[in-house]
């Protein structure tokens, strides 16, 4: 039995007022010396509060560009991003980002604890509350034993845990993750994937998880948004109907898991070959 496919250029949207994160017709064109480069053509989708969605696409499909637009680090050329109904114009207070390059996203001159604490301190939070949040966050990621180490003294996986702890302690409503586990080894990666599921359930935070790994997207998400190749539109918005309790051995062994993975794989292959959903082609030629 094949999952239902609906080749549309927009992802699932929600009625106004119900979405936590809304991406509306986002387009991003880079103006460079060598001419204009259209990285993202037209993207629309909604995330409801507490949802965990994965964004997967072939390499070079503008995933990072999109994430930067959502996080307010880049201004989209057209369209808008709404967080809880408010338009995003700069990095919003309710959002935290975990980058792929853990070695470059933590402050090497601060100890683990100081790294996690800095955003809270900067937000003007009191010492006692800060300490409590930092302790909880470090415990949640299993790092309560190394608060006085420097990040570079830790392994790659541990460093990414610090980055996650920093995001968690910040108490965001939306957590964006940009291929966070692309640079860690396979074993650590499985642990971190489970960690993300645990943290997500515990905090009830909305998570948008960008990855190029098909297995990872299916294993993690409640929903997988498949991107086309650049200039990027949405290839498919897929519901992941796997049981809510997931674990590395059993979930990955389910026939349904294999089907879903197969389906996503096919879609990505089609995207690589240049296939685009009908609506997107029209939108593209109209612009």
């Amino acid at each position: 039995m094949q999952p239902e496919t609906t080749p549309v250029s927009t992802g699932r949207t929600l009625p106004e007022g119900q979405a936590m994160l809304s991406v509306r017709g986002v387009k991003k064109v880079y103006h460079t010396d060598g001419g204009d480069i259209e990285a993202v053509r037209n993207l629309t989708f909604d995330l409801k509060a507490g949802e965990l969605a994965c964004l997967v696409g072939p390499s070079g499909s503008g995933k990072t560009t999109l994430l930067k637009c959502i996080s307010g680090l880049l201004a989209p050329t057209e369209g808008e991003v709404l967080l809880d109904g408010a338009r995003v114009t700069g990095p919003p207070k309710k959002m935290a980002v975990v980058f792929q390059e853990y070695g470059r996203s933590l402050f090497p001159w601060m100890r683990v604890r100081e790294n996690v604490e800095l955003p809270l301190k900067n937000a003007g939070m009191g010492k006692a509350e800060r300490d409590k949040l930092v302790d909880e966050a470090l415990e949640a990621v299993g790092l309560d034993h190394v608060p006085q180490s420097y990040p570079w003294q830790l392994s790659g996986g541990m460093q990414q845990r610090v980055a996650i702890a920093r995001a968690v302690a910040y108490q965001p409503e939306v957590l964006l993750m940009d291929e966070p586990f692309a640079a860690v080894d396979a074993q650590t990666r499985a642990d971190l994937e489970d960690l993300i599921r645990t943290v997500w359930k515990k905090l009830g935070v909305t998570v948008l998880f960008v990855t190029h790994d098909i297995d990872e997207s299916v294993y993690l998400g409640q929903r997988v948004i498949i991107l086309s190749s650049s200039p990027t539109v949405i290839q498919e918005d897929l519901e992941i109907d796997l049981p809510d309790e997931r674990d590395q051995l059993n979930t990955r062994a389910l026939p349904r898991f294999t089907e879903l993975r197969h389906h996503v794989y096919e879609q990505i292959q089609r995207a690589k070959q240049g296939h685009r959903p009908a609506a997107a082609t029209q939108a593209g030629s109209a612009s």
Partner: peptide, 10 residues
């Protein structure tokens, strides 16, 4: 970092 996608898009 070159932003993901620029190379392919070019």
């Amino acid at each position: 970092v070159t932003t993901d996608g620029r190379g392919a898009a070019a």
